[in-house]
Design a protein around this nucleic acid. Sequence first.
RNA 1: GCCGGGAUGGCAGAGUGGUUAACGCGCGGGCCUUGAGAGCCCGUGGACCUUCCGGUCCGCAUGGGUUCGAAUCCCAUUCCCGGCGCCA
Length: 429
Amino acid sequence: MLDIKLIRENPQFVRSNLSKRNSPDCLKMLDELILLDKDWRANNTKLNGLRHERKQVTVEIAKLKKACQNADIQFRKATEVDQKITHAEKRVVEQEAQIKNYLLTLPNLLEDSVPVGKDSSENITVKKWGTIPQFSFQPKNHIDLAIPLNQIDMERAGKITGSRFFYLKNDVAMLDMALMHFALEELQNRDYTPIVPPYMMKRGAYEGVTSLGDFAEVLYRIQGEDLYMIATSEHPLGAMYWNEVLKLDEMPIKMAGISTCFRKEAGAHGKDTRGIFRTHQFNKIEQFIFCKPEDSSKLHEELLANAELLYQKLGLAYRVVNVCTGDIGTIAAKKYDIEAWMPAQDDYREVVSCSNCTDYQARRLGVRYRAKEGAPPIGPVHTLNSTAIATGRTIVAIIENYQNEDGTITIPQVLRKYMGNREKITKKR
RNA sequence: GCCGGGAUGGCAGAGUGGUUAACGCGCGGGCCUUGAGAGCCCGUGGACCUUCCGGUCCGCAUGGGUUCGAAUCCCAUUCCCGGCGCCA
């Protein structure tokens, strides 16, 4: 959510920033919001005047009653003003709801270093790491490797839940846990607090951490309850301090979220349908930070560096892209993606998304900070989030990058200690 | 799930139908002081208007209701505490 005061005081600045997003709707909304806000303020002032009038009458009645005098005239006046108030209130409440809706829909302001572009094809590669593996044979995709080894069962998952679900079995089931354990240990060594959050959230909390469009497209709702399954632990971690005021000396708060993620993938029909690359359910370790505004740029780089180091330790080649204005999404002011090399696709694919949400998410959530106990709040904090490891896609990368000609898969060195010190994934009964 | 108790500013905690959320702590500013502290004075939730002097409204968990008037009475919901029940 943007600061309505900034919109009032400096509409040109907001307008020129939002125009980089290549979305005429968004500029139209901004113009409508500015007019609506002006009208609301006028109506609100009028309403306050009426309420004042109403209070005066109440005071008169109290006086007359005390003096045992007749107050019929005042009662009549009260009823009259009440009607006007009811009318004015209705309009003001409606306008407030509309304004809130505009504010929840308008996207974040972008940082200057975000490249201008129309879609993901115009993201800028800022770094490449590692060597793309060369195979002396035709490399297979993760499914054609894992199924003969009896490590993944897609068919039976389809039978009980439909497409985009899976059973992980044997070594790959262990690999899933090993990746979680590995990422968690690395982050704990950097003072990130491990947290298992709730896997469901109320709508009100959810509106604070995500954009309204996500409710239909990605979130599973629990029938008959005001609860949504989390799409990432970013959401319950972000909502953790909902409507709270943090103290300066307790920031930055660095957390490592541990959770399964649930996504409808409603807008992804036909994309990545084979295997476990894009699924309705996967495990993920997520990094999340609450910090002072002046620290967020620096910490954004830290989150990226943490994620990069994990992929370096896993020995997976990747590139880092600076996501452009047309692809960045509603809440981020700047976003990096890490894309790992996927041999079967002969391309880099997204495995990490690392965002600086500046004050946008925090303002929606009402998370502010104060200098010390007793001092008044200074303003909204900044929030940042980044994948550490999402197991599904990382498993795909490992299986494909570490495949051997005989169809077995070498286990990356750093994961062996979590997998009984075995070196290879082989066929299981 | 049942019975009982509760939710008031950053914190602690009064107010239990009549305009004003007491007192305190904390925090900010001022006076005093070589300085610090103590002491004293003023201020300290949010929104809106403003000619910058000030003015108005909202705010006592949330949403309704009763009343000329609600932190206070009634109903529903959420959460917390205690007791009972159920449960991996």
